[in-house]
Each structure stands twice: as C-alpha cells, then as structure tokens.
Simulated scan of single mutants.
Amino acid sequence: MPVPAHGSWLADIAAARHGLDRSSTAGRIADLLREQITEGRLAPGERVREEELAEALKVSRNTVREAFRLLAKERLLVHEFNRGVFVGRVTADGLADLYRVRRILECEGVRCAPEAPPGAFDRVEAAVLDGERAAAAGSWPDVGTADIRFHKAIAALVGSDRVDEMIRHLLAEMRLVFHEMGSPREFHEPYLARNRRIHDLMARGDFAEAERELRSYLDDAEAQLTAAYREKAAKKPRRRRD
C-alpha cells in the first residue's frame, strides 16, 4: 500500500494552527496528529519531524515534544534513539487486545442504542452512507475512514465522554492495522454490507440480533487480520545464527 503523501498531512495540521490558542497547545497538537493517523494520512513507520511540526504550527519544539509524549502513551508514536520519532506499528498481540476492548465498548454501544443521545444514531447511518458512496467512487482508503467513523459512532451510542475518548484512541491504532493489509478494497468491501446490516437491525429495534452480528463481524475481522499478520511474519527472512 503506498505511503500517504508527506506534505498533505503536514499542510492540514499547519492550516489548523490558528485554533491552538483555544485549548492546551500540546494536547491540541496531539489531537491533530491522531486525526491524521485515523484518516490514514500517516502510515506505520513514517517519520514525524519535530522541527517541521514546530515550524508549521509556529510553536516551540518543547511543545511538540510534549505532544509526542502524549501520543507515545497511546502507542501511536515511537521514539527511536538517534533516529527520531516515527508512527507506530501494532503487533499481533496488540491486535488481539484491541479487539478485546473493542468488543466491550462497541457491543455496549448497541445495547445502549435505545437510549442513545439525540443525533447519535444518525451518525451511525451517516458513516454507513459515507462508506457506500466512497465504494461507489472506487475510493477504498476513504471506505476505511468511513468504517472507522462507523465503529466510533457505534461506541458513541453509550453516551459517555470516557467511552468516546477510549474508542477514539483505539480506532487510531486500528487505522495503523489497516495499512498492514495489501489491498484496501479486498479488506473493506465485504464489511460494507455488514455495516449496513448492523445499522438496519438497530433501526428496526432488533438490538439483540445487531449485537450478535457485530460480535461475529469483529471475530471475522480479527481472524482475517491475524492471518495477514502471520503471513507477513512467515515471509520475513530469518536472521542467521553464527
């Protein structure tokens, strides 16, 4: 999968610099970088240069370093000694843990759907429609972005700021996992119809069946991704022992 164009994500972040004075600067920079990762514009292993960010945002390098520290705690960035800061990679063990937590949060979202906050269910439908439109246009990376928004909207049915924050961090890591798949279309296309089915089941009030479908969906996705990880690991040349 091609690495996203470097200049595009940096330009997006630079365009947002005027809003930095309205919130904690380091936290807002972390939010901007996390958003670029979630949107698929920063790929695993890509270097994030401290000096470029500081210049683009007109902030100190110390402030950028603090943003980096925040994202390192979320496992989205890693610092490599004498090399710099890079977008992280999710390990096979990390993948299993991501799905473990996602089942807790997203299935609870479906159970809470009957009492969801106003407008929350509309965001589920909007994400489904975004994915279908992107697929029709042949824009499969955008299908991936819509899929992330769909699962974020499912968890948001709980109506909890803490859950929203947790799922936002988890799905940023999931977007890094998507990069491990060779073909965005091959991975995402089968799940479009399943997103629609989960939405439609909830829309007609069949929340128990919607939860069963979601659990099956997450099980299948985890199994598919785990198989891809194992295949990649098998293809890596083994280090010779002297």
Rank of each mutant, 00 (worst) to 15 (best):
A126T: 00
H79M: 04
D31K: 08
V59Y: 03
E50W: 04
D161K: 07
V110H: 06
R204C: 02
R17S: 12
R204K: 06
E46P: 06
A221E: 13
H6M: 03
R197W: 03
L105M: 06
A233L: 04
L170R: 04
L170N: 03
G144V: 05
D206R: 11
S216K: 13
D21Q: 14
P114L: 05
E52T: 06
P44M: 00
I104D: 10
S216M: 11
F150I: 13
E222S: 13
E51Y: 06
R204H: 03
E132V: 02
V128P: 00
Y99A: 08
A193C: 03
E52Y: 06
D142H: 09
S60N: 07
R194T: 08
N195A: 12
P184A: 01
K236P: 02
V48Q: 06
C107Q: 15
L176I: 06
T145Y: 11
R241H: 04
R100L: 13
L32P: 01
I198S: 05
K236D: 05
R196Y: 02
D122F: 08
L171N: 12
L171P: 07
G40Y: 03
G205P: 05
I13C: 01
R102L: 14
A120T: 12
L218W: 08
S216E: 11
D97S: 15
V48G: 05
V128S: 07
R41F: 06
D97R: 15
T25P: 02
V85K: 01
R212F: 14
A14T: 01
A15H: 15
K236E: 09
E80G: 12
A26D: 03
E74L: 04
S23V: 10
R212C: 13
R83D: 10
D93H: 09
A92P: 00
T38G: 15
L129F: 08
L170C: 03
E50H: 09
R230A: 12
D220P: 05
D220W: 09
L98W: 04
G94C: 09
M202I: 01
G7K: 10
G88R: 03
A116L: 01
G27E: 05
A72N: 09
R47F: 07
D97Y: 14
D200S: 04
D219R: 10
